[in-house]
Amino acid sequence: MSIDRLVTSGSFSLDGGTWEVDNNVWLVGSGDEVVIIDAAHDAAAILGAVADRRVTAIVCTHGHNDHIDAAAEVAAATGAPILLHPADQVLWEMHYGSDVPYVPLKDGQVIDAGEVALTVLHTPGHSPGAVCLHARELGVVFSGDTLFQGGPGATGRSYSSFETIIESIEDRLLTLPEETIVHTGHGDSTTIGAEAPHLGEWLHRGH
């Protein structure tokens, strides 16, 4: 059983602005097969990290272009389906139009990643279809851009809501065991226990 982190670099564009970003791409699986979480920016680097393993799914934690922009190329190379929550359809179409199909994710769905199960937690706020993936057996949650080291993901742009992301974090993430490791969409990992005490500060900061 392995969790591999690959950092790729590219740009994020929304609301007429573009920013250079580094993204975490997570590969979760066994020696034979792997699930890719957030195929960002660099298909060649991602395929290199996959090596000779079979890709069973490309899961998008949300539809912002910096998390999906290599998904179509990786899917074409591997034959793996792309999974996205349909509430992010509008964001998906901003990047891909209607040309690239995906399989709709739903809350509570379980994705098989080799020797581990990833449970989908719908955590809207950063975007309407944002999801986290909880690997209970490993004590790990992949949070996308919902929760970072130091607080919630950004909610200052279109299709996002501060109140909603706080509700998602409080109800879906802070209820996980405090030792749960949080592997984020950007930057360093953290734990539920490290972030939970700061909920009040985030609420104060957001208003």
Score class of each variant (00 low, 15 high):
R136K: 15
H134L: 15
H134W: 15
I82R: 03
G16R: 04
H64S: 06
T119N: 10
D171S: 15
N24I: 06
V90E: 14
V25M: 10
E33N: 04
G114N: 09
S2G: 11
G151S: 10
I3Y: 03
I58K: 04
A71K: 05
M94D: 13
S9K: 13
R136S: 15
L138E: 13
E195T: 08
L47M: 13
L176R: 10
D188K: 10
R157Q: 13
A40F: 11
D99R: 15
A71T: 01
I68V: 14
H126D: 09
W92S: 05
T78L: 03
I192K: 00
L133W: 01
A51T: 05
V141A: 02
A135N: 06
L118A: 07
E137H: 13
E170K: 13
I169M: 05
R54T: 08
A113L: 01
S143M: 10
T123G: 04
R136D: 15
R53K: 15
V21Y: 07
L84F: 02
Y96C: 04
V141Q: 02
D38I: 02
A45S: 15
G48Y: 05
H85I: 07
L121M: 12
P128K: 11
A45N: 09
K106H: 14
V35A: 01
P124E: 12
D88T: 07
L83G: 00
L138T: 03
L133Q: 00
H41F: 08
W26L: 12
D145V: 07
T190W: 07
G187E: 12
G10T: 06
